[in-house]
Design a protein around this nucleic acid. Structure first.
Lengths: 353, 353
DNA sequence: CTGAAAGCGCTAACAC
DNA sequence: GTGTTAGCGCTTTCAG
């Protein structure tokens, strides 16, 4: 470790270049045109490079009152969906000289350590994904920080903007796909997570089935996990008459459901169709590959960051009366793969697959 | 949005409580014993609560010269392993009032946006996982920041500390398991990623097979992905004589390998055994479940953060001569599941094929 | 075109 | 015990 000399400051650079400290700031800030001579500007740049000068972010933040940093709050990081969300947000942020700090909110009941007490980074804004509105109260001391919500209830929120995935449409596409294959007895393996996105899936599925004259779905809640999904699916499959399709709230649950089907000596998709949600890498890793709903996670992250930047830029946006509900909804797409087939005994069904 | 009055400062609190600004700092910093009277201390706390006062982190950082924030650099976030790593690091960090900022290094060739230019968070230290030593040069301006390396070559590094998983032992366990099952023709589906962790896997596997008198493994490099793994495995299985076991550098590749085996009309594990590495959720989502090496990712993240805190605390540690190589190695464990079985035709094998 | 100076909010050393 | 003060490194305004 080279813990040698202390970090050079803009004063050191100024001294080395033979200019004033202010000139250094101007040159390095790129706003020296008509303020500093080209020769001196070059000298400053040279000295800065020489000394390995890096501006002190804390000082800049203090002076500017802004940090060019946004916090991305997600319920968990173990899911690829949130990783892609982050990638999208970070890409847009970088284009605007912003940084993104990830805060995986400790799920469950544990006391959430306040990142503001410790993160050491002051923030300009918060983007929260798939979170309950209430869970964010602690994250916004005094409600002073601009907030953008992703994948959340556009009604029950104090967010300046909301970016949503068209979960309802995705669910409708799943239902239509299954109905078109002749399925009528559908079970819902529901994520036992209290969030808007899962509420929508449940409500929309029930509605679509009702509209088609099907019996209401058997619903079994399950924690997010392969083993848990398998357990829930086994329970659903024990119903009489047995469901011919299992609609799962996410791909991990669907993978578990497939295992449960096979453990009962049945086949996917000939005997039971299974659908997922999210289109994670997992969806193509299992066999058969999962019919699932592809979520534009990266695009959602990008849109969320754009919305936040918009709020930050428009000084009036926050305070303006009659504020418009700034809600963006991103389309989703059904990826039909091997885990769904005509319902056994349905007119659409051939001999086997 | 409540973009009303500006954020209260410690001066506002002082005014409201009728004390000096310094007293506020003392009281809220918890070091007022024998400096401020209990009555005034209570008044300060009350006023702070009243106004919703939150110290300005930028100002504190500037004053203190430290930010209580560490950067965790990982090659990609799409992998659960790194998510668990982060969880472990963040847990320890929180216990010490530190925050962790994640920097998923853009993989591939794209120009890496410098996190120090944009992250907006000044840093006290860096923890880097599974990175090439060279890739980090840009991340440590002037080499001034304490660095802890995770899962990296302990030799070729300028890190203050290194925390490693016992990859070599894990690989040896895989080899021993396979050899014990009578396998002798082994192929290696190798991650086409230039990093120490994968070099060790390749070297150790080759060594173990050589020591057992087996022919050297057919090695097929593959990008990290299910489809890519399947392609590589198909190539490996085309060798004559056909390998009876596929050792994969990670679970995702192993999932792909299983698909390739089946696509050839063969069975896992009766005809071909497959092993993974990492023990991701994926390992138990596929069927058969993968025999794989369980990596204590969370513990590694925690150990890395502890090491960094140690470096930060011990002021002498960095500069002291004769610095000890601070290397921790965490044990790993083979999880034997359904994807491995006795080699076909081996004495250990049952009826088999 | 250039330099000097103020001050962001906080902590710690130092007077009183 | 308590209050006052000097900066941390930066940007920006204001005189030269």
């Amino acid at each position: 470790m080279t813990t040698g000399r202390p970090r050079p400051t803009s004063r050191d650079v100024a001294r080395a270049a033979g200019v004033s400290q202010a000139a250094v700031s101007l040159v390095l800030g790129g706003k020296w045109h008509g303020r500093v001579s080209a020769a001196k500007a070059e000298a400053v740049r040279g000295a800065a490079r020489e000394l390995g000068y890096r501006p002190n972010l804390a000082a800049r933040s203090l002076r500017l009152g802004r940090t060019r940093t946004a916090l991305l709050v997600v319920p968990a990081l173990t899911n690829e969906f949130f990783a892609r969300l982050h990638a999208g947000a970070a890409r847009i942020a970088a284009e605007h000289g912003f940084g993104v700090v990830l805060y995986p909110s400790p799920e469950g009941t544990g006391p959430a350590p306040d990142p503001f007490g410790s993160a050491g980074a002051a923030l300009d804004g918060v983007i929260a994904s798939s979170m309950a509105s209430e869970a964010l109260a602690a994250l916004r001391p005094g409600g002073r920080l601009p907030l953008v919500m992703l994948d959340s209830d556009p009604e029950r929120t104090q967010a300046a903007a909301t970016v949503n995935l068209d979960i309802a449409d995705g669910t409708r596409q799943v239902a239509a796909h299954l109905l078109g294959l002749g399925h009528r007895r559908v079970a819902h393996i529901a994520a036992a997570v209290d969030s808007w996105t899962f509420e929508v899936r449940a409500g929309t599925l029930a509605g679509a089935l009702r509209a088609a004259g099907c019996p209401p779905p058997v619903t079994v809640p399950s924690a997010l996990g392969v083993a848990e999904g398998a357990r829930a699916a086994a329970e659903a499959l024990a119903a009489d008459p047995r469901p011919t399709a299992l609609v799962c709230d996410d791909d991990v649950l669907a993978a578990g459901a497939c295992k449960a089907v096979r453990r009962l000596g049945l086949r996917v998709p000939q005997d039971v169709s299974v659908t997922g949600f999210d289109d994670l890498a997992l969806a193509c890793a299992v066999e058969p590959e999962l019919t699932t709903v592809r979520l534009p996670a990266e695009e959602a992250g990008a849109a969320g960051m754009r919305a936040l930047l918009r709020v930050l830029d428009g000084p009036a946006a926050g305070t303006a009366g009659g504020r418009e509900a700034d809600v963006t909804t991103l389309p989703v797409e059904l990826a039909v793969r091997g885990s769904t087939a005509p319902a056994p005994g349905s007119p659409a069904a051939p001999g086997g697959r």
